[in-house]
């Protein structure tokens, strides 16, 4: 079998990541109880981004894939950010 994808992630790593995800979930719920005004949504999204980074990197093995996979994901995220950002250039100044 191709050597590039033969990395077997041990159980331990997965379980540690899972614990980290649970902790982050706890953090986001507790932080949401404090009123930070408009900052709130950004804090929530940042924590969600950390969580998804963990899922993508370890659970989905992206960390162990070729550079191509990472660049492709980056392009998809940039395009999505552009779609949202450019729409806001209309929405914010209307």
């Amino acid at each position: 079998m191709s050597s590039e994808s033969s990395h077997i992630v041990p159980y331990r790593t997965f379980i540690l990541i899972w614990i980290a995800l649970l902790i982050l979930t706890g953090v986001t719920i507790s932080v949401a109880q404090i009123d930070l005004g408009p900052l709130n949504i950004w804090v929530a999204l940042s924590i969600a981004s950390c969580k998804s980074a963990l899922v993508v990197a370890i659970f989905m093995h992206l960390k162990y894939e070729q550079l191509l996979f990472k660049l492709a994901l980056l392009s998809a995220l940039i395009i999505l950010a552009i779609f949202i950002g450019f729409t806001f250039i209309d929405v914010l100044y209307r």
Partner: peptide, 26 residues
Amino acid sequence: LENAGLYWHLVDLIWIFLFPLYYLVL
């Protein structure tokens, strides 16, 4: 199995964002 797993993780990923956006807006 790996690809099915990838799909399942995506479902999880979407929820990671839906949860704060809908349940934690303040």
